[in-house]
Design a protein around this nucleic acid. Structure first.
Lengths: 334, 334
DNA sequence: GGTGCGTAGCAAAACGATTTGCACAAGCAA
DNA sequence: TTGCTTGTGCAAATCGTTTTGCTACGCACC
């Protein structure tokens, strides 16, 4: 009835546990004859080695975690979909091909109690400045890598999301489309993506000698917040002819606002955003966005984390993001 | 440098490991004075109990898994989003409030090697008839619950997704909208949702005395497959005025086909689908679909799994799904 | 007959917690 | 004095592996 252990199996096969262990791991030679017998009996008894015992002995659980301190509602979008989940799905695949399992650990209100589970390492998605998750895992001596650099912590290995380049791509594209008065909708949280977007925007307006219209928005209920703000902006500041949104839901909110104030897109107002998710693709009109190569980023993060766990300090660089031009900013003839 | 263990802490505090253990667990009384001292020292040394050791001793890892034997591309949609990920996000939340972590285990091509990680239990999403995952976890004596009943295995505890009722809701809605010649686009896999949809459809056409048009489609590259099939159907069978799609991507494929054959939606052709995900919501026109209450389903699945792990045979019932009528089937004035 | 070497196997010590049974007080009643 | 309880603490067993050191045998080579 109970699960057979290695010593049950050893007893049944008339050998010692050592021999059974070696038979499976191949760390030492055991007689092929004996090997066969052990395997046959293992099958018969339904023996499977205990992951917990193995973990204790080897110090490896075979589990890595994926965490984001962003509220789930934001990270995963209104329908629990989006950025984080796209990374999660890719990372889970990458992890499994390396015989690892991927744990999803959401930011719980009453955290950091974070259960009893222990991980070999953790991938943090766009952590903030002084993110409590970092403190949590550093205390536990858990290997950390980050997707997106960590503000103020260049020592933490990360996959650079190239947010500066991304912002430049989008802003230059707007300029090429003839936009002169560009508003930026950025989140308030101190994450690299927002910081670099703000920097790029500041540099852009300085270079073009145009007026800065930097609008900081809370990321909760992003679409509605952006909608209300943009309604206001479009009414009081009719010169605005471009919107650079750092979060896809900001962009769709802006589109709704444009619609309600009778601004034709893209003729009167171009809207572009950063993350090319389902939201951007299915928006009406579809949103110009940037392919961040998230599956590749996730794959590299897993790779980097494994190096980190093994103590190698190997560094990993990610490819440059690529602009995907769609109807929300593509003017005729250009 | 190394992580302090319980005996390091005991030594530092001048007590035995037993006392330290009790101080934290509260399983026996220890002097409040001693308690304070231990806690202070634990903080100072940065002591955190090892999850692995605890798991070995207690037989609980504190980790549950979420698995689907559906290819990820299908379960999660073309952009790695959708049904499975929505469940995953909700389940992760529910799990954490119970001090559990949720592991995502994708169906790997070279499975079932499934790493070394061990789980207290597993939630299977819409398993098929004779699903290899079931065999895998039963062999390991891992507690199983299923989202959607398991065909041929009424003994496995599950959250019934009410696919029969869902299909009826959709078919009756189409009938009310005046559709007489309804085609059904169903997947080929032997999952309860497809089986019950087929049954409901058969009963429906029998009752209404209309012609059955049951089209079975592979779930790989669902949208394109459905698009091509429906193109064919709409050309050769112009009487068709309704489409019942069991998978959201089938529905969007059908919409594209309707568009390319100049069928106005919903006037000439009504399209409805089952899962009310982002795809259905953002489709043009938006798709009539069914709210399956996935967050609630995920929550109940976690609850059921915990009961299962503890040996309680508590059963859980899910609420009835609710129809969400949208433009893809809503005719004027009705 | 010593020396060296390859093969096959075992016993025991980790890994780091939890839990059980026991010990030694002090306090109080009979 | 004995008996009983309550408070406090410890030593040792346990969970199921992996890994290290050791034995023992057989065979060949100087």
């Amino acid at each position: 009835m109970k699960k057979p252990t290695i010593s049950d199996l050893a007893k049944a096969a008339g050998v010692s546990v050592t021999t059974v262990s070696h038979a499976f791991s191949g760390r030492r030679h055991v007689d092929p004859e004996t090997c066969k017998r052990i395997e046959r009996l293992a099958d018969q008894l339904g023996y499977h080695p205990s992951g917990m015992a193995r973990a204790l002995r080897s110090g490896r659980t075979g589990v890595i975690a994926l965490a984001s301190s962003m509220p789930f509602a934001v990270a995963a979008g209104p329908s629990r979909l989006g950025f984080l989940m796209e990374i999660a799905a890719s990372a889970a695949m990458s992890a499994l091909t390396r015989d690892l399992a991927l744990c999803l650990i959401p930011p719980h209100p009453t955290a950091p109690s974070y259960g009893t589970a222990s991980f070999d390492g953790v991938i943090l998605v766009e952590p903030m400045l002084d993110d409590p998750l970092i403190q949590h895992f550093e205390q536990r001596r858990t290997a950390i890598v980050s997707i997106g650099t960590v503000p103020g912590r260049p020592d933490i290995p990360s996959i650079d999301l190239r947010s500066h380049e991304t912002a430049c791509l989008l802003l230059n594209h707007l300029a090429e489309q003839g936009c002169r008065q560009i508003a930026a909708l950025l989140g308030t949280s101190p994450r690299t993506s927002q910081i670099e977007s703000a920097d790029a925007y500041a540099a852009f307006v300085a270079q073009h000698g145009t007026q800065a219209r930097l609008i900081r928005l809370e990321e909760e209920d992003a679409e509605n917040t952006a909608y209300r703000q943009m309604l206001d902006v479009l009414r009081t500041d009719p010169a605005v002819d471009g919107v650079f949104a750092s979060i896809d839901a900001f962009a769709t909110g802006a589109i709704r606002a444009a619609h309600d104030t009778d601004r034709a897109i893209p003729e009167k107002l171009c809207v572009v955003t950063r993350y090319d998710g389902l939201r951007a693709k299915l928006s009406q009109p579809p949103l110009t966005a940037v392919d961040l190569y998230l599956p590749m980023v996730a794959e590299k993060a897993v790779e980097l984390l494994l190096n980190q766990i093994d103590g190698h300090k190997h560094s990993v660089k990610s490819d440059l993001p690529k602009l995907i031009i769609r109807a929300s900013s593509q003017k005729r003839g250009s």
